[in-house]
Design a protein around this nucleic acid. Sequence first.
DNA 1: TTGCTTTTGCAAATGGTTTGCAAATATTAT
DNA 2: ATAATATTTGCAAACCATTTGCAAAAGCAA
Lengths: 125, 125
Amino acid sequence: MRSTKARRDILDLFHNEDVPLSADYVYELLNGEYDRSTIYRNLKNFENNGKLRSIVFSDKITYFYKGSEHFHFIYCVKCKKFERFDLCYSESISKYITENLGYKVLGHTLYFEGICKNCQEEMKK
Amino acid sequence: MRSTKARRDILDLFHNEDVPLSADYVYELLNGEYDRSTIYRNLKNFENNGKLRSIVFSDKITYFYKGSEHFHFIYCVKCKKFERFDLCYSESISKYITENLGYKVLGHTLYFEGICKNCQEEMKK
DNA sequence: TTGCTTTTGCAAATGGTTTGCAAATATTAT
DNA sequence: ATAATATTTGCAAACCATTTGCAAAAGCAA
């Protein structure tokens, strides 16, 4: 895979980013400097070589995040923002699935949806 | 909400079904007797009144399942079938999110992906 | 059955994502 | 550096699950 300006710019966005980004949001963060197809293609490339991971929420949009760590998200259905949390019981569930159902587990997806603190305050007004 | 043949036929499919069904599969199971828009509209109706729940997998297709119970799924990426499992630690995670992040939790999605026993055998051949 | 409301089928629209292709850019050998 | 080769980009069109507008059909109460 060659190093191009588009790829460097896209990947840079994720370095200090803790929450998942959609292709469209990446496009906007880069001020439309690259075509959407370029963004989509490269996000997928990064996912294939492990630099990014992706998750699909109930809105059916793919969100990407750094592939180096393992964590999960809670999504506020009002303000549409994510927050990260690290608690995860996947290992014990994986064990259960492997031992009792015989699967070879490849991965899992876990996310919560709710209303964040700020939005709860907003709604009281 | 009125009782129509379409609604009765659609809902009947879920009574003895343990795994999630897509709108398209519902359409096929009913031999194309109803228009896809009818299927889509009614699945969404059922979800709104609690008769069904839905989950979106990484394929971005909405799958519906009986709303009466709470359970999760493991999906075989080879044979594309689901299997249900009931183990879930969502309550302790919910508690964590509520107490530490201040969210009001509305729901969660948890699924695993892997390769089922049969497909593992197949792959050995 | 009448009259009113909801539901259905059809066709067209939607929207995120993908793809074909020619032009532009990165890499490699000269 | 330069030319030769392979990859990547931008553009426009295609995809595909899902949604929507609208007129005809079906459910339901009186």
